[in-house]
Amino acid sequence: MSHIHIPDGILPFYLWVPAYLITFFIIFLVIKRMDKEQVKRVLPFTGIAAALMLIAMSVPLVIVPVHLSLAVLTGILIGPKMAFLVVFVVSVILATFGHGGITIVGINTLVIGSEVLVGSTLFRFLGKKHLTTGVIISVVVAVLVSMTMTIGIIGGAVGFEEVLPHTPHSHDENNVGNHNQETHQEREHIDEVVEQVNYLVFSGWMAVILILVVGIALEAVISLLIVRFFSKVKPDLLDTIHGFVQS
């Protein structure tokens, strides 16, 4: 859900170059520490998990203007290490047809990779005792973490006041300099843009928040239903990946 769609040439190089370097470093560590035999076994399924993620991320949900990522689900099914590699591969393929710039691949891998890591780690601890609660908490917390990262990155590029909900005209009007006037104009512009967002009977920030809540809920529910289905039909997979047997 937190896939960044910013095209090339917008984010400054000091954001995307380090992101690429960190991504390559993590990929190097992941590959170095992997058991070759285990890799050979899970590789074909990894391709399928990646293809599923690719399809989920290419198709916008009709009822809300966002798309699923199934990143946490991928982490649960194939483990966080392989899932991180999958996230990189999916981000590269999506970038080749304009779904986020090619320079954003590193940032997207780190953002969605964090979702994978947080989600699958939480599931490892929580899913053993209670599958439903484990999946829901894992997905919700993981998506919130990756969204915070997204807001941080976009905020770093265009200013935090532009991406966080705020009350217009709330700043001290006695202290208005040139810079504040510019910021004020920008805020008004953002508010105008946000006011145009409509969802059901809501508009503005309320609509934005509602879209995010519905999006996260859909990601959690779909992941939960698939994991439950999986735990009934193929419980040994979750056992192998996370080291526990579902009750």
Binding site: G47, V89, I93
Partner: peptide, 16 residues
């Protein structure tokens, strides 16, 4: 390994 995942993803995509 990464190139293999690329290939597997590409192949699996059309099958899926």
């Amino acid at each position: 390994l990464l190139v293999d995942i690329f290939l597997m993803t590409y192949r699996s995509f059309f099958i899926l």
